[in-house]
Design a protein around this nucleic acid. Sequence first.
DNA 1: GTAATAAAGGATAAATTTGTCCATTACTTT
DNA 2: AAAGTAATGGACAAATTTATCCTTTATTAC
Lengths: 144, 144
Amino acid sequence: MFSKACEYGIRATIYIAEQSIQNRKVSLKDVAKAIESPEAYTSKILQQLSRSNIINSDKGPTGGFSMGKQALDKVKLSTIVSAIDGDSIYKVCGLGLKQCNEKMPCPIHDQFKAIRNELKKMLETTTVKSLSVGFSNGVSFLKL
Amino acid sequence: MFSKACEYGIRATIYIAEQSIQNRKVSLKDVAKAIESPEAYTSKILQQLSRSNIINSDKGPTGGFSMGKQALDKVKLSTIVSAIDGDSIYKVCGLGLKQCNEKMPCPIHDQFKAIRNELKKMLETTTVKSLSVGFSNGVSFLKL
DNA sequence: GTAATAAAGGATAAATTTGTCCATTACTTT
DNA sequence: AAAGTAATGGACAAATTTATCCTTTATTAC
């Protein structure tokens, strides 16, 4: 569904959000450990998230990754998915046709559209902040 | 969503179904041309479909690919997806966690489950035969 | 300003997916 | 039987994704 990079990106963002709510900055190492992801690869993904203003990053001692209040309120799952996987998940034909549209639909066009719209709606209405709550509570998990 | 191999597999099966309904066997070349796919790669995919008894294949002159009445009635989109991509699309956690389940859910477990169930239902209730009708009519397309 | 710290960035490697090429096998027709 | 045809199968190549390593840059504390 999502690329591995995007999965790491979502998990990382949820973790950073949860920590930021408690006013804690986290290092790359912290993140990689918390979500059990390869450190160097995770670094690349955090860079992307940072460039997209989903998280912010500070260098040097006392540096690390965090999210501001604004970001915590604004960032939805869709924000992260778009930043890492692009919007192909919303746009691309289920059967890989370049010119699939209402006028020239692929055979599963309508069925797919319905499901994709649901997915889109879900991603656009789910905030990272809301997801971080469950994680903070110990109700949901980010490892393994 | 689906792998490229699976996209080709679905398109190929719809085409073969449509031709089989008109009692026409088709060659690898026919298929590759009809769905605009790389011939050699398509060959591998047709082999998989054949081994899974989704289509049948005959060697030699007058050979080619076809679907019997049984297959035409039984084969759903889910049959093809399982044969080529496996059932990961139904089972795997949206965030890539190995141990994600009701007891230890990832943060988006419930939201994802809902959408995946819809997808599953759609794939399990859509027959290739039904899709081949629209293609046969010129209502839907398999190229580009 | 020096040393220490942590992210950024570039180059490269491993793994997976996608795609190609060619010899072999099965079958049909003559 | 021989020749021709079409799928099969194995080996290989290209492209993409995932992952690693190491140097550079920015920042902080002393």
